[in-house]
């Protein structure tokens, strides 16, 4: 499934998610981050699996899909470079509630969720800064979901 990582090394500090974060957190987390590359069609996560990592997309495109028993699979959002794959890993029970599939060759850095949570727990200041960066992602997804609910283009 997972292709061998390419030669160049991705750095957490270069990802948009950590942009402007003070306190050196991305540098410290770099050690527990794993670089991965996905080919078109590869699954990054599957619904129901344990959400065991925080995934930062550096390049490529990832489709978030929902599967309903009586309907064709639906892509509800795509993520590209500079975006992160959600927050399921942070909330108990840590479980993915949708599928994520690469629709372009995709490179990521993925941080082990247990280690990440431990770091944030033991350094509450870092934890707070981290959440300040994560919260806008959640808020924006909520805003977008509301707009999508209005089905504006359908009118």
């Amino acid at each position: 499934m997972t292709a061998p990582p390419p030669a160049s090394v991705l750095r957490l500090a270069d990802h948009k998610f950590f942009e402007g974060m003070i306190g050196g957190l991305p540098e410290r987390l770099q050690a527990v981050a794993t670089e991965r590359a996905y080919s078109v069609g590869d699954m990054l996560v599957r619904e129901g699996d344990v959400a065991d990592r925080f995934i930062l997309v550096f390049e490529g495109k990832v489709a978030l899909e929902i599967v309903l028993p009586d309907r064709p699979r639906v892509t509800i959002q795509t993520l590209g470079g500079g975006e992160v794959l959600g927050w399921s890993w942070l909330l108990p029970p840590p479980q993915w509630w949708l599928d994520a599939r690469a629709v372009k060759r995709t490179r990521t850095l993925e941080i082990n969720a247990a280690k990440l949570r431990a770091t944030l727990d033991s350094h509450p200041e870092d934890g707070y800064r981290f959440l300040l960066h994560l919260f806008p992602v959640v808020a924006q997804r909520l805003d977008h979901t509301r707009l999508q609910l209005m089905d504006l283009h359908g009118r």
């Binding site: 639906v74 892509t75 959002q77 795509t78 590209g80 977008h144 999508q148 283009h153």
Partner: peptide, 15 residues
């Protein structure tokens, strides 16, 4: 706003 698997483009709002 939403697509099936035949779509390889972006899904999401223009914003």
């Amino acid at each position: 706003d939403a697509a099936g698997r035949e779509w390889y483009g972006d899904v999401g709002l223009v914003t």
